[in-house]
């Protein structure tokens, strides 16, 4: 079963690099992180040796980039009919779902790893807390996994990649901003306290923010991990349920 999952994983990962789109994507990702870090985030002007200006824009970048990575995972299989081939191979659906997700996640990890010059820059200029930076990278990757799991599931609902992308952005936006005044100001006046707190606790921004500050709370890690598991499970359910359509 593991062997089948690895085969799926390798095919999907190679699929990203089969066209120039992967390289274009990585270049865009690096350009945007650069622009946000050095211009919008005012990395130099802050005069502090840390990567906060770098990490704090990741949720907003991922909001657009993760749906772009995950949109093809299932929608393309539906469009070309290859889903029929894939799901009649002797492999469990859970292994297919996991293989596809891990390929998208690995691709993201490669893009993220290529931001290492920023890390080198800050280490050259000052004496940053390396532990906080490592936590930031791991937190960022974990959060990216959350976005990807959401978008992979939504990709399975349609055979149109554009629709998969748009749905992904919308749902990711909800999870990103759920703890901010944008959402809380709307629901606080009428919703019961417990509901407000529950919705606020879904916020990627708040949880990622504390990780970037160097506060590694087990609850945040459990949150992202269970979010990924939940959406991957939903992904399998959607594929099973939408096969005929």
């Amino acid at each position: 079963m593991i062997r089948g999952m690895i085969a799926i994983f390798r095919r999907e990962l190679a699929g990203y690099f089969a066209t120039p789109v992967a390289f274009v994507f990585i270049v865009i990702f690096l350009l945007l992180t650069g622009i946000f870090t050095f211009y919008v985030g005012a990395f130099f002007e802050q005069g502090q040796a840390d990567l906060k200006p770098f990490f704090m824009f990741h949720p907003w970048l991922y909001l657009l980039l993760m749906p772009a990575i995950a949109m093809r995972l299932w929608a393309e299989e539906r469009k070309t009919g290859s889903i029929e081939l894939l799901l009649t191979l002797p492999i469990r659906l859970s292994a297919v779902v996991l293989g596809k997700f891990l390929a998208a996640w690995t691709f993201t990890a490669i893009a993220l790893a290529l931001t290492f010059p920023v890390w080198i820059t800050v280490s050259y200029l000052g004496r940053p807390d390396q532990g906080v930076i490592v936590a930031g990278y791991l937190g960022s990757l974990l959060m990216a996994g959350g976005y990807l799991a959401i978008c992979a599931c939504l990709s399975a609902t349609t055979h149109n990649q554009v629709i998969a992308f748009v749905l992904g952005v919308i749902v990711c936006l909800l999870f990103t901003v759920s703890g901010t005044p944008i959402v809380l100001d709307i629901i606080t006046p009428w919703a019961p306290q417990a509901l407000v707190e529950t919705i606020a606790s879904f916020s990627f921004l708040a949880r990622f923010g504390s990780i970037v500050d160097g506060v590694i709370d087990l609850r945040d890690i459990v949150y992202f991990a269970s979010l990924i598991i939940f959406w991957l499970y939903a992904n399998a359910v959607v594929v099973e349920w939408r096969k005929a359509g």
Binding site: G81, E84, T88
Partner: peptide, 14 residues
Amino acid sequence: IGYLPEGAPAYAEM
């Protein structure tokens, strides 16, 4: 089972 689905779908980029 060996199965040839209708339209012989495959992965186009491979």
